[in-house]
Design a binder for these strands. Structure first.
Lengths: 194, 194
DNA sequence: GCAAAGTTAGAGCACTCGTTCTAATTTAGC
DNA sequence: GCTAAATTAGAACGAGTGCTCTAACTTTGC
């Protein structure tokens, strides 16, 4: 049978160095700029030995990110101020930008598409479950604003506000962000008082 | 001086045939699939004579779309049921998908980036102005939900719901859409009664 | 220190890309 | 119908792509 053939000590570190390079390129110039030669140059290592194909690399980048995201989301929704903590995660510029790029890249990389769909489902399920339990604490009517709507609204709002800010669009995103903070103040205060 | 050298009769039709082809490719396989040879094949004409460069083509696709969008948005916001009409536009799958692709493409096509920024600013300004006038009619508190927040929320919500639906993600988007319709019903009814 | 396995750099392959050029064809205006 | 301009197809160029192969190099376990 196949021998164990264990990798060397430094290998996992090199894998993550390649993943870091891929993320950085994606954030700077978009997913289409993530080419084998560009990653090689940025990481100082050739990717093909460690990942085989670009598809595999994209999937690995996504997986590493997705695992962190789901863990952090779970913690946030179980924290003292679930809405505020959730918003902090959703409105993180780096994470949002990467998610947008990876989702766009998934359009023509089917192995990646499956991963993206899975994360979308898991994250939304997590959010909806958590919201089902806490929405009433915030004084939000569940018939008028069901968890599925609130979840989509939070994610969408974060997406638009963050993207407009990152891209430097002149869309009063600062004012919107301030209003969201005020809203969170009021909601979290109201929840504590209940 | 330069002679008039007027183009032939069929030329404008051919230009728009190329634009149509570019849109179709983008919707099907993403902006990165819009290559000169692919467009040539899809449209049956060579694009370089009519547009010069791919950058010019992308800008032309965006401009044609942007002009229609702003006009339709203006009409919607001046209609009898501004929120509902606006939502209908924002949640149009084809328009949303194209906007996402073009915005992503703008990441590494600077001539396009300038156009996108301009549309974002103009559309948002239009929305904020209209909302400033009608928000109170809907019984929405302007301090708690300022126009800039409502505008970002509507666009973000549409983005997420439509994208999840188009991509077949299992995120309860159907339920969210139904809740939005109920919300619109209530809001528009309340506005009429005022 | 030595063999075996892990890892590397570099060349190379077959392909696609955006764009330009040229020669041929089609059309418009007279 | 003729001429000048508009438009076309097709080849070609240099560059970049994902990926493979090979020969060298480095580390590991004994």
């Amino acid at each position: 049978m196949a021998e164990p053939r264990r990798p060397r000590a430094a290998t996992t570190e090199k894998r993550s160095r390649i993943l870091d390079a891929a993320e950085q390129i994606m954030l700077k110039d978009g997913y289409a700029a993530v080419t084998s030669r560009r990653v090689d140059a940025e990481a100082g290592i050739k990717l093909h030995y460690h990942f085989g194909s670009l598809d595999d690399l994209f999937v690995a980048v996504f997986r590493r990110r997705a695992e962190r995201s789901v863990d952090r989301l779970r913690d946030a929704l179980e924290s003292d101020q679930p809405l505020r903590a959730w918003w902090a995660i959703a409105s993180d510029p780096r994470g949002t930008a990467l998610l947008v790029e990876l989702t766009a890249a998934a359009n023509h990389r089917s192995p990646l598409q499956a991963e993206v769909a899975e994360l979308a489902r898991d994250a939304r399920r997590l959010e909806i479950e958590a919201l089902s339990a806490i929405l009433e604490d915030y004084g939000i009517d569940r018939d008028e604003f069901p968890p599925s709507l609130v979840a989509a609204a939070v994610q969408g709002l974060a997406l638009v506000v963050v993207q407009d800010e990152v891209r430097g669009f002149d869309t009063a995103h600062g004012e919107a962000k301030a209003a969201i903070e005020r809203l969170l103040d009021r909601l979290e205060r109201g929840r504590g008082a209940r």
